[in-house]
Nucleic acid binder design. Structure first.
Lengths: 154, 154
DNA sequence: TATTGTTATACTCTATAACTATA
DNA sequence: TATAGTTATAGAGTATAACAATA
């Protein structure tokens, strides 16, 4: 048994390989770490990253249609239905009729939703600090800008 | 009907909101774009990002155990079984006995696997260029370094 | 007693197609 | 004819637990 002295030698070797510099792979692995951490932080609130994201948008009074949420969160419209159904059944958001388009539903936050979001936001912020603490403030700004371009196109 | 003149006004509004600067959210969205693009590029080879990653590691003769792959790719050991089963049934990789540990299987690439990887790598590289083209070479290096730290810890 | 690979199972996420009511 | 929301379904990804062989 030798995995005790030299910790994960096989993995360290692979980190120096071709994938270790592949932006797509690093993006995927960093995201997997991030999602796992965020979901753990959100578990006490019975939220996950996707439902948290919906709550975050409506909590700042963006008054999005489900179609807006679908595009912004990059989810299929049918997934938005399920997410809003869940949040609405828990009294955290509500569907309002858009007076300008009777097909569209405007999603708004309730006071309970706003309160839960406030607590959830604090929990995720703490979890993120632990993860991104290795980066300086300036680095975080640079990273944010570059990811924004990749996420939404040039 | 007004969604023609001003393209996606709702989404643009949300991009300036709180989530638009949230590193975890940007990471998730950028990764979703990246994965979709890579999977499309890999489809002609009947590969997906996960099976491509396995192939990439073994194609550089890292000779990993399934446990090594599990840790490096952040997959459950049972998922590695399924991925290797698939690649092995297609003659792209093989399981070898580790002479130093009869429990472990060393995963090696076959000549067919190496050939397929070469073509798949070209296809994904082209797709990535289209996505990351907005970033300068220097920015890509910075991004790679920061993501590496997030992906593998400080 | 701990670890490698394996099987099994359940849950979450993703992707597609079709339907309704409106525009 | 096209779009917003909805329903249904299947496939991919994630997470957990248990087991046999070996260390």
């Amino acid at each position: 048994m030798e995995t005790e002295t030299a910790a994960t030698p096989g993995v360290d070797r692979m980190r120096g390989g071709a994938l270790g510099e592949d932006l797509s792979f690093l993006l995927a692995r960093a995201n997997a770490v991030s999602v796992a951490s965020a979901n753990a932080a959100l578990a006490p609130f019975e939220l996950r990253v996707r439902s948290y994201a919906v709550l975050a948008v409506v909590a700042e009074d963006a008054r999005p249609s489900q179609r807006d949420l679908s595009e912004f969160l990059r989810l299929d419209p049918s997934q938005v239905v399920a997410l809003v159904d869940d949040l609405q059944s828990r009294g955290l958001v509500a569907r309002e009729q858009d007076p300008r388009d009777r097909r569209a539903r405007v999603i708004v936050v309730t006071s309970a939703g706003r309160a839960l979001f406030g607590r959830a936001r604090e929990a995720t912020a703490n979890a993120e600090r632990a993860l991104h603490g290795a980066l300086s403030t300036r680095e975080r700004e640079q990273l944010s800008g570059m990811l924004h371009r990749l996420a939404f196109g040039a």
